[in-house]
Amino acid sequence: MSTIGESFAAALALILGMDPALREIVGLSLQVSLTAVFLAALIGLPLGALLALSSFPGRGAVIVLSNTLMGLPPVVVGLLVYLMLSRAGPFGVLSLLYTPTAMIIAQVVLVTPIIVAYSRQVVEDLWTEYGEQLRSLGAGRLSATPTLLWEGRFPLTTGILAGFGRASAEVGAVMIVGGNIEHVTRVMTTAIALEVSRGDLPLALGLGIVLLILSLGVNAATALLAMATRQERRLMRRRVA
């Protein structure tokens, strides 16, 4: 059988077998990446909106910088976070290296620039459309920020999903700051890297397929949530009518 065929068989066996080791790894992957994306959104959405609505000297430079950070190689982020969290680094006393928390920190650094860029673009475009109306209704730029973020929720969701994609797919950063420790910091991507190292390519690709399915699940859940929201509205409308 070809490697690809074997991989699908391996993926199928992994999923159907509900392998406890796999469950643990999948659980940790989701936990780390979803938490990181949630925190990155908490930081990135208001930051992007602020960048879109404020004007200060050097704003252009800040935007170019934040866009550049989107291209940061995960390994570099991993290294930077490692140097910060290492015992020899400034935050060594916190004992965070080789923990899921360290992985979350690295992924927050990776994902935040993406969410900042999306929310800046979305809010900037919305302000062109809404600005005059909102000012007329009595909103200032600051009080308009949450409104615009809410108005832009659908395109912003895309940005957040892009961030989740980057977080769940990267291996370089979590490998360095997490250490790929079994039962502690082993996630899907580092497990895949390990299986590649062991030359078990079908199993590695099988895990890759599981990761893909996972990502599909998150995206589908988001789409369903959006649909449910609309459905809910439709029902509410009918109830009124």
Partner: peptide, 27 residues
């Protein structure tokens, strides 16, 4: 929905904290 989502995330974050106190370990 958003509120409960946020709560779920915060809960996850809590779980993500290292279980260091739980048992002794060495690296």
């Amino acid at each position: 929905t958003l509120g409960s989502l946020a709560a779920a995330f915060v809960l996850t974050l809590g779980l993500a904290a290292p279980a260091a106190a739980q048992e002794q370990f060495i690296v």
